[in-house]
């Protein structure tokens, strides 16, 4: 009798796993773009820096997300030199800290009045500064899972699910003219599942990765002469 119940439960969990596998990995993405003054011939030997906004009280734009976008752009067009964010912030310390980072392109002029800052920018041949603002968050979660441990036995049983949402906006500043030349935004969301029959198997929706690819594609299209 109890064997039949376990069989039924196992079948139900297996069904849920199958459903989760089918649904897992499904991510909804919405991309918005508004750009102008595109560099038709590409950016030549100039460089680009991508920086995250971290002055808001409740979130920081993740360093690894910025790195992901930089890698995406560089792998799409190796001729585009993307300066590493942390190296850039350290080289310009203390002018790109959350407290001091310019919020408007016009305020860069004030930074350029400092001779060592102006000299370093010259060395870098910086053409575009791209600011990314946003983050990825887990949203509501449901389900239950219980885990147990005994002499020589351990395992979990149950099912859990939770959502993940990403919202990022990239603002492109033309560093030569000190003007904003575009905004690209990406909103993605997805559902994650964690069925557990002895061993929990997380099925994670690549929400942040999709946001990185979407934003990276748009930025690559803007910066590269070959896309």
């Amino acid at each position: 009798m109890s064997g039949q119940r376990i069989d039924r439960q196992t079948t139900r969990i297996a069904g849920l796993i199958l459903l989760a596998v089918l649904l897992g990995g499904c991510v909804n993405a919405t991309v918005d773009e508004m750009t102008y003054n595109e560099p038709v011939a590409g950016i030549g030997e100039s460089s680009v820096v991508i920086l995250g906004r971290r002055h808001k009280p409740d979130y920081d734009t993740e360093f690894d997300f910025i790195e992901c976008i930089g890698d995406h752009i560089h792998s799409g067009d190796p001729s585009i030199e993307v300066i590493n964010e942390i190296a850039f912030i350290n080289q310009f310390y203390p002018w790109f800290e959350p407290r001091t980072a310019p919020l408007q392109p016009q305020t860069i002029d004030r930074l350029l009045q400092l001779p060592p800052v102006a000299a370093r920018f010259d060395e870098m041949k910086l053409e575009y500064m791209i600011w990314i603002d946003g983050n990825t968050e887990n949203t509501e979660s449901t389900g239950s899972m219980s885990c147990g441990i005994g002499p020589g036995v351990a395992g979990c049983f149950g099912f859990g699910t939770w959502g993940t949402e990403s919202e990022y906006e990239a603002t492109i500043w033309d560093f030569t003219d000190k003007v904003e030349v575009g905004r690209v935004s990406a909103q993605t969301s997805g559902q994650n599942y964690m069925p557990a029959v002895v061993v929990p198997i997380p099925i994670i929706a690549p929400v942040q990765g999709t946001a990185c690819d979407s934003l990276g594609d748009q930025l690559l299209e803007y910066l590269s002469a070959f896309h």
Binding site: Y93, P94, E97, P98, R99, T100
Partner: peptide, 13 residues
């Protein structure tokens, strides 16, 4: 570490 860097930025400015 972020707080220390912020202290330096505040001091300089």
């Amino acid at each position: 570490v972020v707080a220390l860097r912020d202290a330096g930025a505040h001091f300089v400015t």
